[in-house]
Simulated scan of single mutants.
Amino acid sequence: MKKKILFLLKLPPPVTGATLMNQYVCENKSLDNIFITQTIKISYAQNNINLATFSWGKIIIIAKILFKLVLQILTFRPDLVYFQISPLGFAFYRDLFFVTTIKIFRKKILIHLHGKGIDNKVKGSSFQESLYKFAFKNVHIICLSELIKNDIAYVYTEKPFIVNNGIPQKTIVKTQENRRLARLLFLSNLNRSKGIIDYLDALEILSQKMIPFVAKIAGNERDYNKNSILQLLRTRNLTDQVEYVGAVYGNEKDDLFIKSDIFVHPTLNEAWGLVILEAMQAGLPVVSTFEGSIPEIIDDGITGFLVSKNDTSALANKIEYLIKNKDESIAMGEAGKKKFYEKYTLEIFEKNILKVFDTILK
């Protein structure tokens, strides 16, 4: 008899790395051949801007989800509940209600962690420590990488599963043209935590050194909007070299990768970074930071370069190196593309997540 899995998952909208990966799990057709599945969709906001804001409407949504959860446990009778928990803030306390409810009915729980910050949260707070230990007691946990598993080492004594994220394969064909100007790309939500200011400061350094380049910024408005980005460009005398193109999706986003030479992602807070996989698939060398899982994704000096967070001088130096050493830059991009197809495709992710389900329910 097939085992039953209940998915309790945040799904788009809005589109985030976590909701996108949750959607991939739900749409994994190979699961239907082995398990019987049901899904409770969680969505608290229609866009990224409202994602972190409080509203009474969200309280009503939480109550409805709790009701659906209890109903599904009683009627569907799952052998396992798969849940992507939010690791920090109000969202963690909210998700703790769901975990507690599942535990009351003595159901197996598989928690998929797509964020980080727990280790810092529990330091110096016995109350926070007790909450996380309760949430993670007698449950199975998936972490995104070997590096990220250290984030829960203090509150989770078992060995977590490690499943790297993956994205769908696309046919992206880049042509190597003889260009006078290197083309740089920053693609992310315009949050301070994504390193947009460090990116602009590094470009200012390159401009002052007369390094030839053009650059684009793409992403949804968040902490910064179009007007504030344009103002930041003006104060750095970058308006002739840097263009903000707004949010991009689908073919428009693919075209940006195709028409770029170097991908720059100087993030200050990241658990994984799906956009890095997109850049690798497109054959771009990546300049990023020693943050979250990124040192596992990017092989420093082989598929790109890593710098310390907020080190704009080092960031500028690495970008300059790639601009001046085009053949090596191309070779790094090809090495990254090879690593993508070896480790980070959606097919590989689906096989690995299936192994986890099978291990727990065998």
Rank of each mutant, 00 (worst) to 15 (best):
K2S: 06
K2D: 06
K4G: 04
K4Q: 08
L8R: 05
L9C: 11
K10M: 10
P12I: 03
D32M: 06
I34F: 05
F35L: 12
I40A: 11
I42V: 08
I42M: 15
A45W: 11
Q46N: 12
I49S: 05
L51R: 13
T53K: 14
K58N: 07
I61L: 10
I61R: 07
I65T: 07
V70N: 07
I73A: 06
F76H: 08
R77F: 09
Y82Q: 10
F83P: 01
F83Q: 10
P87H: 00
P87V: 08
P87C: 06
G89N: 10
F92D: 00
L96H: 08
L96Q: 11
F98N: 04
K103D: 10
I104K: 06
K107C: 06
K108H: 05
I111G: 04
I111T: 07
L113G: 01
G115E: 13
G117E: 07
G117H: 12
V122E: 03
G124C: 13
Q128E: 15
S130V: 00
K133Y: 04
V139M: 08
I141V: 15
I142N: 09
L144Y: 04
E146H: 13
D151M: 08
A153K: 15
V155F: 12
E158L: 12
P160H: 06
I162K: 06
V163T: 03
I167K: 01
Q169F: 00
T171L: 15
T175N: 15
R180K: 14
D198Y: 02
Y199T: 03
L200A: 11
D201N: 14
L206P: 06
L206F: 06
E221K: 06
S228P: 05
L232K: 15
L233H: 12
R234P: 02
N237V: 00
T239A: 07
Q241A: 05
A247N: 08
N251T: 12
K253D: 13
D255E: 14
L256A: 04
L256D: 11
F257D: 00
K259H: 14
K259T: 07
T267F: 05
L277M: 14
E278V: 00
T289F: 03
T289H: 13
E291W: 02
I294W: 01
I294H: 01
E296W: 11
I297E: 14
I298S: 05
T303V: 10
K309P: 09
A314W: 04
L315Q: 13
I323Q: 08
N325P: 06
E328T: 13
I330Q: 11
A335I: 00
G336D: 03
K338R: 07
E342R: 12
K343M: 10
K343S: 10
T345L: 04
L346C: 09
E347H: 11
F357P: 00
K362C: 11
